[in-house]
Amino acid sequence: MDAVFSNSGEYLMAFGLTIGLFVVSGIASLVLGTLLAVMRVGPVSILNKAAAVYVTLFRNTPLLMIFIFIFIAMPVLGYNFKFVEGVEIAGYNVSAFFFRACLALTLYTSAFVCEAMRSGVNAVPLGQAEAGRAIGLTFAQSMNLVILPQAARAVIPPLTSVLIALAKNTSVAAAFGIAEATATMRSFTNDNADQRIGIFLAFAIGYVVVVEVISLSSYLVERKVKVAR
Protein backbone atom coordinates (compact mmCIF):
# COMPACT_ATOMS: atom_id res chain seq x y z
CA MET A 1 0.00 0.00 0.00
CA ASP A 2 3.04 2.28 0.08
CA ALA A 3 2.16 3.50 -3.39
CA VAL A 4 -1.16 4.77 -2.06
CA PHE A 5 0.26 6.35 1.09
CA SER A 6 3.04 8.13 -0.74
CA ASN A 7 0.56 9.37 -3.34
CA SER A 8 -2.28 10.09 -0.95
CA GLY A 9 -2.96 13.41 -2.65
CA GLU A 10 -3.63 11.67 -5.93
CA TYR A 11 -5.74 9.03 -4.16
CA LEU A 12 -7.91 11.67 -2.52
CA MET A 13 -8.19 13.65 -5.75
CA ALA A 14 -9.38 10.48 -7.50
CA PHE A 15 -12.12 9.87 -4.96
CA GLY A 16 -12.92 13.59 -5.04
CA LEU A 17 -13.63 13.19 -8.73
CA THR A 18 -15.71 10.06 -8.09
CA ILE A 19 -17.74 11.96 -5.50
CA GLY A 20 -18.01 14.92 -7.87
CA LEU A 21 -19.46 12.68 -10.59
CA PHE A 22 -21.80 11.13 -8.04
CA VAL A 23 -23.06 14.40 -6.59
CA VAL A 24 -23.56 16.21 -9.91
CA SER A 25 -25.25 13.34 -11.72
CA GLY A 26 -27.09 12.33 -8.54
CA ILE A 27 -28.74 15.73 -8.19
CA ALA A 28 -29.46 15.93 -11.93
CA SER A 29 -30.94 12.40 -11.89
CA LEU A 30 -33.16 13.20 -8.91
CA VAL A 31 -34.51 16.30 -10.65
CA LEU A 32 -35.00 14.66 -14.04
CA GLY A 33 -36.27 11.40 -12.52
CA THR A 34 -38.85 13.17 -10.35
CA LEU A 35 -40.04 15.14 -13.35
CA LEU A 36 -40.37 11.92 -15.33
CA ALA A 37 -42.25 10.27 -12.46
CA VAL A 38 -44.74 13.16 -12.27
CA MET A 39 -45.26 12.81 -16.04
CA ARG A 40 -45.67 9.09 -15.58
CA VAL A 41 -48.37 9.25 -12.86
CA GLY A 42 -50.00 12.45 -14.14
CA PRO A 43 -53.22 12.55 -16.13
CA VAL A 44 -51.76 13.80 -19.46
CA SER A 45 -51.54 10.82 -21.79
CA ILE A 46 -48.85 12.16 -24.16
CA LEU A 47 -46.46 13.05 -21.29
CA ASN A 48 -47.24 9.71 -19.75
CA LYS A 49 -46.18 7.87 -22.90
CA ALA A 50 -43.12 10.05 -23.48
CA ALA A 51 -41.84 9.25 -19.98
CA ALA A 52 -42.57 5.55 -20.47
CA VAL A 53 -40.55 5.52 -23.71
CA TYR A 54 -37.68 7.31 -22.00
CA VAL A 55 -37.62 4.80 -19.16
CA THR A 56 -37.77 1.85 -21.55
CA LEU A 57 -34.93 3.25 -23.63
CA PHE A 58 -32.49 4.16 -20.87
CA ARG A 59 -33.29 1.53 -18.28
CA ASN A 60 -32.92 -1.27 -20.79
CA THR A 61 -29.60 -0.27 -22.36
CA PRO A 62 -26.22 -0.91 -20.74
CA LEU A 63 -24.59 2.12 -19.14
CA LEU A 64 -21.40 1.43 -21.09
CA MET A 65 -23.34 1.75 -24.33
CA ILE A 66 -24.75 5.11 -23.30
CA PHE A 67 -21.20 6.24 -22.45
CA ILE A 68 -19.92 5.07 -25.83
CA PHE A 69 -22.78 6.86 -27.56
CA ILE A 70 -22.12 10.15 -25.81
CA PHE A 71 -18.31 10.03 -25.98
CA ILE A 72 -17.91 8.56 -29.47
CA ALA A 73 -21.11 8.88 -31.49
CA MET A 74 -22.31 12.31 -30.36
CA PRO A 75 -19.08 14.15 -31.30
CA VAL A 76 -19.39 12.64 -34.80
CA LEU A 77 -22.93 14.04 -34.93
CA GLY A 78 -21.52 17.42 -33.97
CA TYR A 79 -22.24 17.41 -30.23
CA ASN A 80 -18.92 17.46 -28.42
CA PHE A 81 -20.05 19.70 -25.50
CA LYS A 82 -16.85 21.73 -25.80
CA PHE A 83 -18.90 24.79 -24.92
CA VAL A 84 -18.92 23.81 -21.25
CA GLU A 85 -15.17 24.28 -21.03
CA GLY A 86 -15.59 28.04 -20.81
CA VAL A 87 -17.74 27.61 -17.70
CA GLU A 88 -16.00 28.02 -14.39
CA ILE A 89 -17.57 26.82 -11.16
CA ALA A 90 -15.97 27.76 -7.83
CA GLY A 91 -12.61 28.23 -9.48
CA TYR A 92 -12.69 24.93 -11.36
CA ASN A 93 -12.99 24.70 -15.09
CA VAL A 94 -15.62 22.21 -16.15
CA SER A 95 -14.12 19.71 -18.55
CA ALA A 96 -16.10 18.36 -21.49
CA PHE A 97 -15.12 14.87 -20.29
CA PHE A 98 -16.67 15.47 -16.89
CA PHE A 99 -19.80 16.95 -18.44
CA ARG A 100 -20.27 14.04 -20.84
CA ALA A 101 -19.79 11.49 -18.07
CA CYS A 102 -22.38 13.25 -15.91
CA LEU A 103 -24.74 13.38 -18.88
CA ALA A 104 -24.43 9.65 -19.51
CA LEU A 105 -24.84 8.81 -15.82
CA THR A 106 -27.83 11.14 -15.50
CA LEU A 107 -29.64 9.81 -18.58
CA TYR A 108 -29.19 6.28 -17.26
CA THR A 109 -29.89 6.85 -13.55
CA SER A 110 -32.91 9.14 -13.99
CA ALA A 111 -34.84 6.24 -15.55
CA PHE A 112 -34.29 4.25 -12.34
CA VAL A 113 -35.10 7.28 -10.16
CA CYS A 114 -38.38 7.69 -12.09
CA GLU A 115 -39.38 4.11 -11.40
CA ALA A 116 -38.40 4.33 -7.71
CA MET A 117 -40.46 7.52 -7.33
CA ARG A 118 -43.39 5.96 -9.14
CA SER A 119 -43.32 2.96 -6.84
CA GLY A 120 -43.40 5.38 -3.91
CA VAL A 121 -46.48 7.18 -5.19
CA ASN A 122 -48.16 3.85 -5.92
CA ALA A 123 -47.39 2.69 -2.38
CA VAL A 124 -49.71 5.38 -1.00
CA PRO A 125 -53.22 3.88 -0.80
CA LEU A 126 -55.72 5.42 -3.22
CA GLY A 127 -58.01 6.22 -0.29
CA GLN A 128 -55.53 8.84 0.93
CA ALA A 129 -55.94 10.85 -2.26
CA GLU A 130 -59.71 10.38 -2.15
CA ALA A 131 -59.86 11.58 1.44
CA GLY A 132 -57.80 14.62 0.46
CA ARG A 133 -60.10 15.43 -2.41
CA ALA A 134 -63.16 14.78 -0.26
CA ILE A 135 -62.26 17.58 2.17
CA GLY A 136 -61.83 19.96 -0.76
CA LEU A 137 -58.08 19.92 -1.41
CA THR A 138 -57.14 20.69 -5.03
CA PHE A 139 -55.08 18.18 -7.04
CA ALA A 140 -51.88 20.10 -6.30
CA GLN A 141 -52.70 20.43 -2.57
CA SER A 142 -53.52 16.77 -2.17
CA MET A 143 -50.26 15.88 -3.99
CA ASN A 144 -48.18 18.23 -1.83
CA LEU A 145 -49.88 17.72 1.53
CA VAL A 146 -51.01 14.11 1.41
CA ILE A 147 -49.47 11.97 -1.34
CA LEU A 148 -45.89 13.16 -1.74
CA PRO A 149 -45.00 13.31 1.99
CA GLN A 150 -46.10 9.69 2.31
CA ALA A 151 -44.53 8.68 -1.00
CA ALA A 152 -41.23 10.20 0.11
CA ARG A 153 -41.11 7.78 3.03
CA ALA A 154 -41.81 4.80 0.81
CA VAL A 155 -39.28 5.95 -1.75
CA ILE A 156 -36.20 6.16 0.47
CA PRO A 157 -35.11 2.50 0.40
CA PRO A 158 -35.41 1.98 -3.39
CA LEU A 159 -33.91 5.41 -4.05
CA THR A 160 -30.95 4.57 -1.83
CA SER A 161 -30.26 1.48 -3.91
CA VAL A 162 -30.38 3.57 -7.06
CA LEU A 163 -27.95 6.11 -5.62
CA ILE A 164 -25.56 3.42 -4.41
CA ALA A 165 -25.58 1.90 -7.88
CA LEU A 166 -24.85 5.36 -9.28
CA ALA A 167 -21.89 5.85 -6.94
CA LYS A 168 -20.35 2.64 -8.25
CA ASN A 169 -21.41 3.24 -11.84
CA THR A 170 -19.21 6.35 -11.89
CA SER A 171 -16.36 3.84 -12.37
CA VAL A 172 -17.46 3.35 -15.99
CA ALA A 173 -16.10 6.85 -16.61
CA ALA A 174 -12.63 5.37 -15.97
CA ALA A 175 -12.68 4.01 -19.50
CA PHE A 176 -13.35 7.49 -20.93
CA GLY A 177 -10.37 9.52 -19.85
CA ILE A 178 -11.52 10.61 -16.42
CA ALA A 179 -9.02 10.08 -13.61
CA GLU A 180 -11.59 9.04 -11.01
CA ALA A 181 -10.94 6.30 -8.46
CA THR A 182 -11.00 3.25 -10.72
CA ALA A 183 -8.83 4.85 -13.41
CA THR A 184 -6.37 6.00 -10.77
CA MET A 185 -6.27 2.53 -9.26
CA ARG A 186 -5.38 1.12 -12.65
CA SER A 187 -2.59 3.63 -13.12
CA PHE A 188 -1.27 2.90 -9.60
CA THR A 189 -1.18 -0.84 -10.26
CA ASN A 190 0.55 -0.26 -13.59
CA ASP A 191 3.28 1.72 -11.89
CA ASN A 192 3.60 -0.51 -8.81
CA ALA A 193 2.89 -4.05 -9.99
CA ASP A 194 4.35 -5.51 -6.78
CA GLN A 195 1.77 -3.77 -4.58
CA ARG A 196 -1.37 -4.73 -6.50
CA ILE A 197 -3.21 -6.34 -3.58
CA GLY A 198 -2.65 -3.38 -1.29
CA ILE A 199 -3.69 -0.91 -3.95
CA PHE A 200 -6.85 -2.87 -4.71
CA LEU A 201 -7.68 -2.96 -1.01
CA ALA A 202 -7.09 0.75 -0.55
CA PHE A 203 -9.42 1.62 -3.39
CA ALA A 204 -12.04 -0.94 -2.40
CA ILE A 205 -12.10 0.56 1.08
CA GLY A 206 -12.53 3.98 -0.49
CA TYR A 207 -15.64 2.81 -2.34
CA VAL A 208 -16.99 1.10 0.78
CA VAL A 209 -16.62 4.35 2.70
CA VAL A 210 -18.43 6.35 0.01
CA VAL A 211 -21.31 3.88 -0.18
CA GLU A 212 -21.55 3.58 3.62
CA VAL A 213 -21.91 7.35 3.87
CA ILE A 214 -24.81 7.16 1.40
CA SER A 215 -26.58 4.31 3.17
CA LEU A 216 -26.03 5.83 6.60
CA SER A 217 -27.54 9.15 5.50
CA SER A 218 -30.45 7.26 3.99
CA TYR A 219 -30.95 5.40 7.27
CA LEU A 220 -30.97 8.65 9.23
CA VAL A 221 -33.44 10.28 6.85
CA GLU A 222 -35.66 7.21 6.91
CA ARG A 223 -35.71 7.08 10.69
CA LYS A 224 -36.61 10.75 10.86
CA VAL A 225 -39.61 10.53 8.52
CA LYS A 226 -40.89 7.08 9.44
CA VAL A 227 -44.66 6.77 9.69
CA ALA A 228 -46.77 4.01 11.19
CA ARG A 229 -49.57 2.56 9.13
Partner: peptide, 18 residues
Protein backbone atom coordinates in the same frame (compact mmCIF):
# COMPACT_ATOMS: atom_id res chain seq x y z
CA UNK B 1 -62.69 21.24 -4.87
CA UNK B 2 -64.85 24.02 -3.41
CA UNK B 3 -67.94 21.87 -3.81
CA UNK B 4 -66.31 18.89 -2.16
CA UNK B 5 -65.54 21.06 0.84
CA UNK B 6 -69.32 21.42 1.26
CA UNK B 7 -69.86 17.67 1.22
CA UNK B 8 -68.47 15.62 4.09
CA UNK B 9 -67.48 12.07 3.31
CA UNK B 10 -66.77 9.12 5.58
CA UNK B 11 -65.19 6.05 4.00
CA UNK B 12 -65.37 2.38 4.83
CA UNK B 13 -61.61 2.23 5.37
CA UNK B 14 -61.45 5.54 7.34
CA UNK B 15 -58.65 6.93 5.14
CA UNK B 16 -57.17 9.13 7.84
CA UNK B 17 -53.96 10.81 6.68
CA UNK B 18 -51.40 8.33 8.00
Amino acid sequence: AALRAEVGMVFQSFNLFA
